Simulated assay, not measured.
Amino acid sequence: MNVSAKTEYACIAMIELAARYEAGQPARLREIVEAQRIPQPFLVQIMSQLKAAGLVVSTRGATGGYRLAKAPDRISLADVFHVVEGAGDQADSNLQKPSPATEALCGVWSQICQARSKILEEVTLANLAARVAEQPDEMFYI
């Protein structure tokens, strides 16, 4: 599955915010950039989109930053994908006069898109934050 860098960065930033949700403290862009190695200009653009869509809220000032607009278990990956990539999966043929073989393939493409959409809707930020928390920290010994 091909996912754009922008979509992947948006998901990573949202997982970071989900991990911080219980503490109730907003995360500054710099903190997200440092923790997740997302290019800052890209992150500014992404957070603006997520804010406009109502998935995150921001607070200005010295103690400001970004927080999830609702609980992580109420935000799915589909929500993030729709904001960044736009609505709808494309499963249409590029041919002007489809043949029976093309129509059969379009049926398969449509099934793939439906399965993808179902999985994205089922996986929440809470699920992903829990997976991240379960993974051991990498340690390097010399």
Rank of each mutant, 00 (worst) to 15 (best):
residue 1 M to G: 15
residue 1 M to S: 11
residue 3 V to K: 05
residue 7 T to G: 03
residue 7 T to Y: 12
residue 8 E to H: 09
residue 11 C to Y: 01
residue 12 I to F: 03
residue 12 I to H: 03
residue 18 A to R: 11
residue 18 A to H: 02
residue 19 A to V: 01
residue 20 R to V: 02
residue 23 A to Y: 05
residue 23 A to R: 14
residue 24 G to W: 03
residue 24 G to T: 08
residue 25 Q to P: 00
residue 27 A to T: 08
residue 28 R to Y: 01
residue 28 R to I: 01
residue 31 E to P: 05
residue 37 R to M: 06
residue 37 R to H: 13
residue 37 R to E: 06
residue 38 I to C: 07
residue 38 I to E: 06
residue 39 P to C: 00
residue 39 P to A: 01
residue 41 P to L: 00
residue 43 L to C: 04
residue 45 Q to H: 11
residue 46 I to H: 04
residue 47 M to W: 00
residue 49 Q to P: 03
residue 51 K to L: 08
residue 51 K to P: 00
residue 52 A to T: 13
residue 53 A to E: 01
residue 54 G to V: 10
residue 57 V to W: 00
residue 60 R to K: 14
residue 60 R to Y: 00
residue 61 G to H: 03
residue 61 G to T: 12
residue 63 T to W: 00
residue 63 T to P: 00
residue 65 G to I: 09
residue 66 Y to P: 03
residue 66 Y to H: 12
residue 66 Y to I: 10
residue 67 R to I: 07
residue 67 R to Q: 11
residue 69 A to T: 09
residue 69 A to E: 01
residue 69 A to R: 05
residue 70 K to M: 15
residue 72 P to Y: 03
residue 72 P to L: 04
residue 72 P to R: 08
residue 74 R to T: 09
residue 76 S to I: 09
residue 77 L to N: 04
residue 79 D to N: 15
residue 79 D to Q: 07
residue 80 V to W: 06
residue 82 H to A: 15
residue 83 V to G: 05
residue 83 V to H: 03
residue 85 E to A: 14
residue 87 A to G: 11
residue 89 D to Y: 14
residue 90 Q to C: 14
residue 91 A to R: 06
residue 91 A to P: 01
residue 94 N to P: 15
residue 95 L to A: 13
residue 97 K to F: 15
residue 99 S to V: 12
residue 104 A to L: 09
residue 107 G to V: 05
residue 111 Q to P: 00
residue 113 C to R: 13
residue 114 Q to R: 14
residue 117 S to K: 13
residue 118 K to V: 06
residue 121 E to H: 15
residue 121 E to T: 10
residue 123 V to Q: 05
residue 124 T to Y: 07
residue 124 T to G: 02
residue 125 L to T: 04
residue 125 L to F: 01
residue 125 L to K: 07
residue 128 L to P: 06
residue 128 L to E: 06
residue 130 A to Q: 14
residue 131 R to H: 08
residue 136 P to Y: 01
residue 137 D to C: 10
residue 138 E to T: 06
residue 140 F to T: 08
residue 142 I to W: 05
residue 142 I to A: 13
